[in-house]
Amino acid sequence: MPKRVTIAEVAKEAGVSIATVSRVLNQRSGKIKISQETDLAVRLAASRLGYQADPFAVALRSRRSGLFGAIIRDIRDPFLVKLYTHMQKHARSNGIELLLGHADYNLAVAGRQANIMGSLWFDALILLGDIPGDRSMIQHLKIYHKPCVAVACGQMEGIPSINIDEKAGTYLALDHLYSLGHRRIACVGDPNAIGIQERLVHFKEYASAHQLTVEEGYFQVCANQRLEAASCAERLMRLPNPPTAIFCGSDVMALGVLNQLHRIGAKSVSVIGFDDIDESAQVFPALTTIRQPVQVFAEKAILLALEMMDEPEGKTSAPQILIQPELVVRESCFPVA
């Protein structure tokens, strides 16, 4: 391994003191101002010698490493992956590297990852997607006194969270179907994911308030997977009075439903999703859906974590931020025949 260049060697190359090199490279001010010529000489010398700052030494001095940790519920979930990608972009624009841990729905794995990130060089922790039982784990993280932000995990007492307005999103979707004349609207969703669980609750509220025809079998429950959602679509179409439209708790399920409907020739049934993952615009027919604006989520999550790092010690803020959804009209919904 090549020997690490020291600031003493940079000082010798530039013809200045070690203290001057330290001030220039660490961007520290002092009583005596450093001239532009000296500043440039130090930086050129550091560049010629290939000097690189020791990140651990910098972290010890500044008490910051420039590292955020993120724990994602499921790396196969296209919405969460899209969210993480945008979050990483915003982190880097603020000089932060966002490193990822994959929990794969396993609370014990998430707990180990959270303990590592909480106790070592990480400045903040971001949780992407809820895991059943994760409330106790998140409360445990408070012992590390580090910023922790929960994104798309549902609202949490005492922990800052950023979520979509689930009621607004569900009502946007159902209002769109209602405006097209649909009254027999079925629902496909996964009650184990807290966001989708809330959408199912608001679906029932809307159906009751608008006197929709919700016959036995219209409420289909399955995992957030295409094949399971496809099976739900087939069961719905076998009912004596099948629905004219299907509201899906996620785009993943909606794509499975849409594919199965076309496979069995039920192309007149409208389908609407939730999330607006990239594939939704690429399939045929393109999926009408509710957009969760991931750029807004990402920016708010990173800025919130940075703001919490600057808070006075002992102050604990826990804002509960709701992001407004958007209706994206494409080709998968149409008026009742």
Rank of each mutant, 00 (worst) to 15 (best):
H182M: 08
P191G: 08
A186M: 00
C187D: 04
A168H: 13
D175G: 07
I196N: 10
Y218I: 05
L180I: 10
A173K: 08
T213I: 13
F203I: 03
K167G: 03
V188A: 05
M156H: 11
C187P: 01
Y218W: 04
Y218K: 06
K204D: 13
V151C: 03
G158H: 07
H176Y: 13
G158F: 06
H202V: 05
C187E: 08
V214R: 00
A186V: 01
A207F: 01
Y206D: 06
A152W: 03
L174N: 07
K167P: 01
H202R: 08
L174M: 06
D175K: 12
H202L: 08
S179V: 02
L212R: 04
C153I: 04
A193F: 15
L212P: 02
A173Q: 10
T170C: 12
S208H: 12
E215V: 01
N192K: 15
D165L: 00
I159L: 05
V201K: 15
F219L: 14
A193P: 02
L212T: 04
E166R: 08
A207G: 06
I185L: 03
A186F: 01
L200E: 12
I185Q: 07
Q220W: 04
K167Q: 13
A186K: 01
S179Y: 02
I185M: 03
H202N: 12
G189P: 00
E157A: 13
E205K: 10
E198L: 13
V214W: 00
H202I: 04
Q197C: 11
E198P: 00
C187G: 03
E205I: 03
Q155M: 13
G158V: 08
A209N: 10
N163H: 06
H182D: 10
S179R: 14
V151S: 05
C222F: 07
H176R: 09
R183G: 05
Y171G: 05
G154P: 06
N192P: 01
H202Q: 12
F203H: 06
